[in-house]
């Protein structure tokens, strides 16, 4: 059994708007999780590499530049290639509603829109990871 939930909060793309990512990282830490924060401007390879080396349970992606259409599928693919397909992925930032079904279909579990409370994210992670661990 794992003692701690380990989360990677990552910012793909080039935008520097990290307010949301940092608030979420801090809230997850205060909820008792071990949070690895990558900082801004991460390439998809860097994010996946970090997720694997840090053996995280889930990966939160924050993006506001609009490049998610290109970058999210790449991350999912790379994770699969490196054996990280079990990692729970969620996302936040500005993602137009039209893009959500497609992103969900490729394996992004949940996309949190603007105005989401951090508690909602904490609850989501705890429920999902808890259920996953019971299954194992």
């Amino acid at each position: 059994m794992r003692k701690k939930i380990r989360v990677l909060i990552a910012k793909p793309g080039l935008d520097g708007h990290d307010r949301g990512a940092k608030v979420v990282a801090k809230a997850l830490r205060d909820a008792g999780m071990e949070v690895i924060y990558t900082g801004i401007r991460q390439t998809t390879e860097q994010i996946v590499n970090t997720a694997i080396q840090e053996d995280v349970d889930c990966l939160g992606l924050s993006i506001l530049s609009g490049a998610h259409v290109k970058l999210f599928p790449e991350i999912v693919e790379l994770l699969k290639k490196r054996g990280g397909e079990k990692i729970l992925i969620f996302a936040g930032g500005i993602v137009p509603s039209e893009d959500i079904p497609e992103l969900e279909s490729i394996g992004i579990s949940k996309i949190f829109g603007p105005g989401t409370s951090t508690q909602e994210i904490i609850d989501f992670i705890k429920t999902q990871i808890g259920a996953d661990r019971k299954r194992r």
Binding site: L14, D15, S65, G66, A67, L71
Partner: peptide, 11 residues
Amino acid sequence: HQLAIGEVGRV
């Protein structure tokens, strides 16, 4: 540049 992928002309 590699980091420019998906970002060119976007914002």
